[in-house]
Structure formats: C-alpha cells, structure tokens
Amino acid sequence: MQAAQERLADMRVVLVCALLSLLSLSHACPKECNCNSNTKVVDCRGRGLYDIPRRLHPDTQELYLQDNRIRGLGSMAFREIPLVRILDLSNNSITSVSPTALLGLRTLQRLSLAYNSLRELDKRLLGPIRSLSHLDLSHNSLWGLPGAIGDSLRNLSHLGLAHNRLTRLDRSLLEALTHLDSLTLRSNPWRCDCQLIGLKLWLETYLFKGGVVDEVLCSQPEDMKDKDLQKVPYQLFHSCMATSYHYLFANIHHLENERLLRGHTHGNHAHPSSHAIHVPMAMGEGFGGGGGGGGCLPVCEPKQRHRPVNLRHAIATVIITGVVCGIVFLMMLAAAVYGCAYAAIMAKYQRELKKNEESAAAQGADHAKADEKESLENAIA
C-alpha cells in the first residue's frame, strides 16, 4: 500500500515537471532569434524572416528585427509583447502597415521604420501610443503625413523624415510637436512655393528656440533648385501676394520679445545664436529693393488670407440688410394673410346679411297680399 502511494507521488511530481516544462516552452525564445532573459532583449537581426516571430516572451522590452524580408505588419502584430519599449523594423521590405498594427504598445518609446517602402501612414497607427519619443521614417517613399498624426506625437523628441518624397509639410503638424529637439528633412523634393513658406517660418522659430534640423533643399521651381529654404529670402517668392504685412510684423515682434525675454532671464550671460539674430533680418529682407512679393508668408494660403477692414464692414452690412429685409418680408406676408382672411369673412357676412334681407322682404310681401285679400273680401260681404 505504501509503495503504491509512493509511486503515485512520483507520478504527480513527473506530471508537474512536465506541465512546467510545457509552460516554459510556450514562451521560449524563437529559434530564429537570440534572447537575453536578464536584459529582456530579443535580437532577430538578419535572419531572413518574412514575418514577425511568434512565441515571444511577454516581458520582452526590446525587439530588433532589422535587415530581414518582412513585407507587411498585420493587425496587432505585436500583441505578445505589450511591454516593448524599443522596436526596430528598419531595412526590411515593408510596404503596408495595418492601422492597428501597434495596438496595445502603450509603453513604446522608440520606433524605427527606416529603409522600407512605405508610401503612406494611417493617422490611426500611432493613436494609442503617447510615450513615443523617437520615430524614424527616413528612406521610404512617403508623399506626406496625415495632419491628425501630430496629436499622437506630442512627446516626440526626434523625427526622421529624410530621403522620402515630401514636397511640403503641414505647419500645424509641426507646431503640435512641442517637445521636438531634432528633425531630419534632407533629400526630399521640396517645392518652394507659397505653400512652403509656413515651413520656412516654423523652421526659423524652431531653430531660434534651440532645435536641430538638417538642410531643406528646394527642387522646384527651377529658379530655386538646390537652394536651402532656410537661407532663401522672402522676396524671392514672387508668386505670393503681399497681403500679410501685418502678420509679418507680428512675427518679428514676437521673436524680438522672446529674444529680449531670454536676455532678461539669463542676464549678461545670454547670447542668442547668430541664426536667432538673422530671423528678423531675413524676414525683413523682403521689404528692400522694392520687391513687391517680399511680404509673402504662410498666410498666403487662402484659408488664412486676411480680409481688409472695408470688406469685413461690407459683409456685415450685407448680412444686417438681409436680416432686416427678411423681417419686413415676413411682416408683409402676415399682413397679406390677415387681410385676405378678413376680406373673406366680411364677404361671407355680407352675403348672409343680403340673403336674410331678401327673405324678410319676401315674407313681408306675402303678408301684405294676405291682408289686401282679406280686406277685399270684407268689403264684398
């Protein structure tokens, strides 16, 4: 009896060990990768992978997948590693990324999609991630970035956009990146027209505040080819209409006040950079030499174009006149309806009155004939 109990106990121990072994194998390191359980780093670089490896340990904090042959990222592609902080997917063949590919990665800090074949990014891709500080999208085929993506990048400190197909970049997106320290924009076919002056003005303010950016060389139009946007004076943008001088002076005043504020804060130790001093000078260059297009600014865009005061007054006058005319029209309509109703009631009343009079007259004639007949009969008798 005791021997049977001992054998049963041994079987239980073997069963428990087998279960533990199966559990450990379920999250074992993929055979294509090298795993460090101490640092929680999984290295799968250069293994010829076509897809994200499975059975990754849920405690993984760094995953390196560069130099493989991955072509796309499906929905919740990294659901097994919700705690990952660094994700490197550079130098693959990625052409498509599902809008929910990064869903669940709320602690992701560094993401690299460089050296791939991306043409666009969905605005929902980075929506759930609020901790991202480093994003590298360089060496792709991006034509642009969705403006709404800026809301997901408010904590970003580095953004890499070099070597893409960008011709312009929305200023409102850049203004949302309030913690941005470095930005790469080189080797893009920038079109230096009125639509890009918003970027130029933002760059000057950004550099004045201490940001770091590489060159922005114009590709179009032909007369500005290979010119650095940061060094192009505003007067060369002849296609812009000089309708925003007040906005120009407002920006100069803002930058000058900020410079004075910095000097007041740091005392005699403050020494603004040479570029910071160049900002108001560069912005004022457009007023020299009689250049008619020198006041061109981001507000050259139709949606930001300033309306003259007399135009605003004219629009207000038209609106007020329209409201007054509408009220008068409604009053006249009400009076017409009331008059028609009153006339109809009076006509009906007159018809009934005339009918009653005719009826009374007929009854009176009948009585008169009856009386005359009676008096004649009495006379004969």
Rank of each mutant, 00 (worst) to 15 (best):
R7E: 13
D10Q: 15
D10S: 10
M11L: 08
V13L: 13
L19N: 09
L25D: 09
A28S: 14
S37K: 06
N38A: 11
T39F: 03
T39D: 04
T39P: 03
K40G: 00
V42A: 07
C44Y: 08
G46Q: 03
R47N: 06
R54P: 03
R55S: 14
P58Y: 09
D67H: 11
R69S: 12
G72I: 02
G72S: 06
L73R: 01
G74H: 04
L83V: 09
L83E: 03
I86H: 09
L87V: 11
L89F: 11
S93G: 07
T107E: 07
Q109C: 06
R110W: 13
S112D: 05
E120F: 09
K123Y: 03
D136C: 06
H139P: 01
N140E: 05
N140I: 05
L142E: 01
G144M: 05
L145S: 14
I149W: 04
S157V: 11
N164K: 07
N164H: 03
R165F: 05
L166H: 05
R168L: 07
S172E: 14
S172H: 06
L177D: 06
T178D: 01
L180Y: 01
D181T: 10
T184I: 03
T184C: 00
R191H: 15
T205D: 06
F208E: 04
K209Y: 06
D214N: 12
E215R: 08
L217E: 02
S219N: 14
P221G: 02
L229H: 00
Q230M: 07
Y234M: 11
Q235T: 12
T243G: 10
H246I: 15
Y247E: 07
L248E: 02
H254T: 10
L255D: 02
E256W: 09
L261I: 07
R262N: 01
N268D: 08
H269Y: 08
H269S: 13
A270H: 12
H271F: 04
P272Q: 03
S274W: 05
S274P: 00
V279T: 14
V279N: 06
M283I: 11
M283E: 06
G284Q: 06
G286L: 06
G294W: 01
C296V: 05
P298R: 15
P298K: 15
P298A: 15
P302V: 13
R307A: 12
V309N: 01
L311C: 03
R312Q: 09
A314D: 03
I315E: 14
V318L: 10
G322V: 14
V323D: 03
C325I: 15
I327P: 01
I327D: 05
V328T: 12
L330P: 01
A334M: 07
A336S: 12
V337T: 08
Y342P: 01
A343M: 10
M346L: 10
K348E: 02
Q363S: 05
H367A: 14
H367I: 13
D371R: 14
D371P: 00
A379G: 02
